[in-house]
């Protein structure tokens, strides 16, 4: 035993845990930044505390009127839901057809440079804007109703699927493409024999996922008049039919949950 007192003296009895941010100064700056941000944002938003508080009893009142949900006008509800489902299915199919040329054009290893850049540009622009913004344009062009909804979701799906497809094509193995090309095949034959088998299963999975996503989006584009259950919901809110609104909300939640379950089930079977 060497001088244990000396050893003990060498052992500090204070220690502070490290922070997530590396140093203590950085942590202090982080929290200070959060507080400053809260002060700044809350002051620019002009949040009226009194109005928020006044909202609480009203929230209670609305909640009371929401229960029990009224399924009395189930026919309107059902029609809206069916329209949403139809928009979603039709848009998915149109989107799938459109995404194939878009995906091929946006794949760096298949398309010539200028076409690639144009396709990528379209994808970036399309992805940036929310479905509701796109819907409002289609409503202006084609009038109120499900057609605008269908075109909106078809456009959004084509962009989304095109991007996924392009990434899959870019990540595929080059060997089979070269092998088929070496047999003297045309571009279409290369796509069909070398590209399709490699990306098909994954792409089918993405298609199904998008069908499910379209179902979710189809409930919202009705807000700007592009058809579907969203239109019915929006109307029920503006008419203060809160018991009908809650019935619609429950139906939407059920439909979306079912759609998600279905999409998971199909995608599991694809593998």
């Amino acid at each position: 035993m060497m001088s244990s007192d000396a050893v003990r003296a060498a052992h500090p009895d204070a220690w502070r845990p490290p922070t997530l941010f590396g140093t203590r100064a950085r942590r202090a700056m982080f929290w200070l930044g959060i507080i400053l941000y809260l002060v700044w944002s809350l002051s620019t938003l002009n949040i009226d505390g009194k109005r928020v508080l006044a909202g609480l009893p009203r929230a209670l009142d609305i909640l009371m009127r929401m229960v029990p949900p009224s399924f009395e006008r189930w026919q309107i509800l059902l029609n809206g839901m069916i329209e949403s489902i139809q928009i979603a299915i039709a848009a998915s199919i149109v989107g799938m057809l459109l995404c194939i040329p878009l995906g091929i054009c946006a794949a760096r290893n298949l398309a010539p440079r200028p076409i690639y850049l144009m396709a990528r540009g379209l994808i970036v622009i399309g992805r940036t804007f929310h479905e509701v913004i796109i819907a409002i344009f289609f409503v202006k062009l084609f009038g109120f109703g499900p057609v605008a909804g269908l075109l909106t979701l078809a456009f959004a799906s084509a962009i989304f699927l095109g991007k996924m497809l392009a990434e899959d094509i870019e990540n595929m193995k080059e060997g089979p493409v070269e092998a088929v090309r070496a047999t003297g095949a045309t571009f279409a034959q290369v796509v069909f024999y070398a590209v399709t088998p490699q990306v098909l299963v994954k792409t089918l999975g993405v298609f199904i996922y998008r069908l499910d996503a379209n179902l979710r989006h189809s409930t919202v584009i009705g807000i700007v008049g592009a058809g579907g259950i969203g239109q019915t919901l929006s109307a029920s809110f503006s008419r203060y039919d809160f018991d009908f609104s809650s019935a619609i909300l429950i139906s939407i939640a059920a439909m979306v949950a079912l759609g998600e379950w279905f999409s998971d089930w199909v995608r599991r079977r694809l593998r």
């Binding site: 050893v7 003990r8 052992h11 500090p12 009895d13 204070a14 220690w15």
Partner: peptide, 10 residues
């Protein structure tokens, strides 16, 4: 506690 920290270093 300080004794735990010292024990840990030890």
């Amino acid at each position: 506690p300080a004794e735990d920290i010292r024990a840990a270093f030890e």
